[in-house]
Design a protein around this nucleic acid. Structure first.
Lengths: 155, 155
DNA sequence: GCCGATACGACAACATGTTGTCAATTGGCG
DNA sequence: CGCCAATTGACAACATGTTGTCGTATCGGC
């Protein structure tokens, strides 16, 4: 198999796995009133070490602040977080976990560990690490390509 | 790094790479009036070997027929495909590429090959293959877990 | 040949992300 | 001090996927 074919096969598999993972994540969190996306936001806030604004959480997650804003609004409506006044910035409120939010996140984290263990059961940690490194390298090449790709496409 | 940690790191990287790939795919197709999603539909129809119905294309791609239906409607509106009567099934029309559609798909395919070569430049085909195999195995475990996961989650 | 299960297309509602736009706040610099 | 650029939150429009529901066409078994 040529390099192009091998790369294409890997890319297609990434798409499929991504879909499967999202579905699994939703299943993992559904009965707690969460989804994969909400869980991700909760995690960013829980693991930040300091209170985050919506825009800050978005930066931490690599998403746009608009997407995070809607999720935060929903999480606040469901009582997982509250928006606390920010002493440093009147408009940019801080997202703070409630006790409910903390408990829900801890519960999901436990499940996720057990789930990851089940899923990766037959895989050597070293092999997982090598695959991660390869994917990271591909993504780096992708982002490098993006930067000066627009000009080359014209040629 | 424990297996759970390694697996979690890999999963997060799959999410990130998926996002980067989608963005790159859109960039690759934009000036032809396509997107990643439309390209995928065009590819399913082009490579099927025989005419496909909307539902058939959806099965071939692992998407729902509703999602494919909308994309096909848009592709038809833009002249990339036409819906031809199906002699075997009055309601299920066949999706057929127009000359425009064929040319657009061929153009994207050329670009994709060059792009994949650039992206995977520093990677050995064997390493790509191993990563693909690992991801496939993870997805298989995931799908197996889904099946009898609902019951275990209660315990 | 009829009848019910199944497949298909259409429509609606929703989830999740994007980009674009706009006003308000903040902070730095002349 | 005052003004201008960057940041932020809000809203809208759109892209892409999902599920649910409905009506109808097709097919297989009796």
């Amino acid at each position: 198999m040529s390099r192009v074919e091998a790369a294409t096969a890997l890319i297609l598999e990434v798409f499929r796995l991504n879909g499967a993972l999202l579905a699994a994540g939703d299943g993992l969190t559904r009965d707690l009133g969460l989804t994969s996306a909400r869980w991700q936001v909760l995690g960013a806030v829980a693991l930040a070490g300091r209170p985050l604004t919506v825009a800050g959480a978005a930066r931490a997650m690599g998403l746009t602040r608009q997407a995070v804003r809607r999720l935060v609004t929903e999480l606040a409506a469901d009582g997982f977080v509250v928006l606390a006044p920010n002493p440093d910035h009147r408009r940019a409120a801080l997202v703070v976990l409630t006790e409910t939010g903390r408990r829900a996140f801890a519960a999901v984290q436990e499940r996720q560990a057990a789930w990851a263990e089940r899923i990766a059961e037959g895989c050597a940690p070293a092999a997982l690490g090598e695959a991660t490194t390869l994917l990271r390298r591909l993504r780096a090449a992708l982002e490098r390509d993006e930067e000066h790709g627009a000009a080359e496409a014209e040629s």
